[in-house]
């Protein structure tokens, strides 16, 4: 453990001087420069936080005929906003249920507990989660286990014989699609 004192400047240097002014000016200029670099950097990084809703769009899930009445089938849509190097990650799976009356329900694949992919079992009419055993009924409502709510559902519409969903966002508790 040693102590260290800054050496005093030789007395010949006048206390306030052009050097002093230059030093202060330098500080100000560099602060301005730092702001010009720093603010864009923050904006660049933070821009991802606000992409949300703007990236949602209607995307086709498939022909109406590919969803027989009374069945629940796995479908997937291509994320509306992708980069060329996104690969398979842009193919988002979801469960499409065609109710006996012909109406649809489109469920996100993600368990509402911690996001694991749920699986559909037609024999028992249940969605089961492989992670912690969350279970949902065929209409997506919560049946049992740790999930705090039923499955997330996508908005959908039928256009020209096609089922379309509003995709582009992975649902979680803070944004349930």
């Amino acid at each position: 453990m040693e102590e260290h004192e800054h050496e005093a400047l030789p007395p010949a240097v006048p206390p306030v001087s052009r050097r002093d002014f230059l030093f202060r000016l330098g500080l100000v200029l560099n602060t301005v420069a730092a702001a010009f670099v720093g603010i864009p950097v923050l904006g660049y990084i933070a821009s991802s936080m606000f992409k949300g809703k703007a990236q949602q769009a209607w995307v086709a899930l498939g022909n109406l005929d590919s969803f027989p009445t009374g069945q629940t089938r796995l479908a997937s849509y291509r994320n509306p906003f992708t980069t060329p190097w996104d690969g398979a990650t842009a193919d988002v799976p979801c469960w499409v249920r065609r109710k006996p009356d012909g109406d649809f329900q489109v469920f996100a694949i993600n368990c509402t507990h911690l996001g694991c992919p749920v699986r559909w079992f037609p024999q028992s009419g249940l969605f089961m989660c492989p992670c912690h055993g969350g279970v949902y009924y065929e209409d997506g409502s919560r049946a049992s286990g740790p999930p705090p709510r039923g499955l997330y559902q996508y908005e959908f519409r039928v256009r020209g014989g096609h089922l379309e969903v509003r995709g582009g966002e992975t649902p979680n508790l803070s944004e349930a699609v």
Binding site: K51, G52, Q55, T83, T89, A90, V92, G168, E169, T170
Partner: peptide
């Protein structure tokens, strides 16, 4: 995530 889904970003 660098956006609304898990992907390249």
């Amino acid at each position: 995530q660098g956006g609304p889904i898990v992907g390249s970003e």
